[in-house]
């Protein structure tokens, strides 16, 4: 157990290092002279010697390796440099933004989990019957509808027509509902298929025949025999979906006027604010790595076969 965790932690650190290298190279390899860009922003590009001054200021004239070390050292302490667009520190409201995005992902993950378990079990309990067809149809539609369209429909349905929930802003649980639902649709659809197919596969395995021979009913077999067997698979898929939610957040946050990391990233991309893009990208990649680590540990807890390999 300890062995596994320490090994996984080392692996994660290597990945984190690689992610930082990727983020750094991406910005370094960007076309155009950054110093000129900043000089332009400050309206002083025509001033002789000013570009060189900016180069000096942001350390452009140092060797690459030194720049990387400086940048990484700053990034670790939460300093992501100066935004090319606003001239302010990139990290200024990052904690607040991370909280917003965290709220979005956490709520959506819970909704997606509950919804997918419900749909998946409905389908597995009455395979190829009406509930299964409905659940399959919903999953197909959910997986095929673009998130921005889902968001637009949510706003039109629940905010414009029925005025149940506000269509924008981050002011308490009522305002969280629509963004949560919007982000949850796609993962719920995908995960419900994971549950449904996983349960059905488990139901054809020999130990289920044993359970049947023991006189257990279908409900007992589904919950006691099949569910524990698909738990590791489900956790793995959920981890992937939680990672994907960062991408969905990029679409949904601006739609509901949430100031999260996704919204920040998108603004950075729009205005080619490399420092912001870089910072958000590093946050995203670190998030994936942490999620993967948690998923691996959770799978370890739920699957005694894997647990044994490492004990």
């Amino acid at each position: 157990m300890i062995h596994f965790i320490s090994k996984r932690l080392k692996h994660s650190l290597v990945l984190l290092f690689l992610a930082s290298v990727v983020c750094f190279t991406l910005v370094v390899s960007a076309p155009g002279n950054v110093a000129v860009l900043i000089a332009e922003l400050r309206g002083a590009v025509a001033v002789p010697g000013y570009v060189a001054q900016v180069e000096e200021e942001i350390g452009l004239n140092k060797p690459l390796l030194m720049r990387y070390v400086d940048w990484l050292g700053d990034a670790v302490t939460g300093d992501f440099g100066i935004s090319y667009r606003t001239g302010q520190a990139v990290s200024a409201d990052l904690p607040q933004r991370m909280m917003v995005t965290g709220t979005l992902i956490a709520g959506s993950a819970v909704i997606a989990t509950l919804l997918s378990l419900l749909l998946g079990f409905l389908g597995a309990f009455w395979p190829y019957k009406l509930p299964d067809r409905v659940s399959r149809g919903l999953a197909l539609i959910g997986a095929s509808t673009p998130t921005f369209f889902v968001g637009a429909l949510m706003i039109y349905g629940f905010s414009v027509t029925f005025q149940l929930f506000p269509s924008f802003g981050f002011n308490g649980p009522i305002s969280w509902v629509l963004p949560w639902l919007t982000v949850a649709v796609l993962p719920a659809a995908v995960l419900s298929r994971v549950v449904r197919v996983g349960l059905e596969e488990a139901m054809t395995s020999p130990y289920v025949l044993t359970a049947k021979s023991k006189g257990l009913g279908r409900t007992a077999i589904l919950f006691r025999e099949a569910l524990p067997n698909i738990t590791p698979v489900f956790i793995n898929a959920l981890g992937t979906q939680v990672g994907l939610m960062t991408a969905t957040g990029i679409i949904v946050e601006p739609l509901f006027a949430w100031q999260g990391v996704g919204d920040y990233f998108l603004a950075g991309v729009r205005f080619r604010d490399f420092m912001v893009v870089q910072a958000c990208l590093l946050i995203f990649l670190s998030f994936f790595i942490v999620v993967n680590l948690i998923v691996d540990l959770a799978v370890l807890m739920t699957d005694p076969r894997i647990r044994r390999q490492w004990s």
Binding site: P206, T210, G215, E225, P304
Partner: peptide, 27 residues
């Protein structure tokens, strides 16, 4: 099926060919 289910396990016990797969691996 419910009537058969009542007989299985209670009045008739079953032993299967492959004990490797006949037991639930995660319980």
């Amino acid at each position: 099926e419910p009537e058969l289910q009542h007989i299985r396990g209670k009045s008739i016990g079953f032993i299967f060919q492959d004990p490797m797969s006949a037991l639930n691996p995660v319980r």
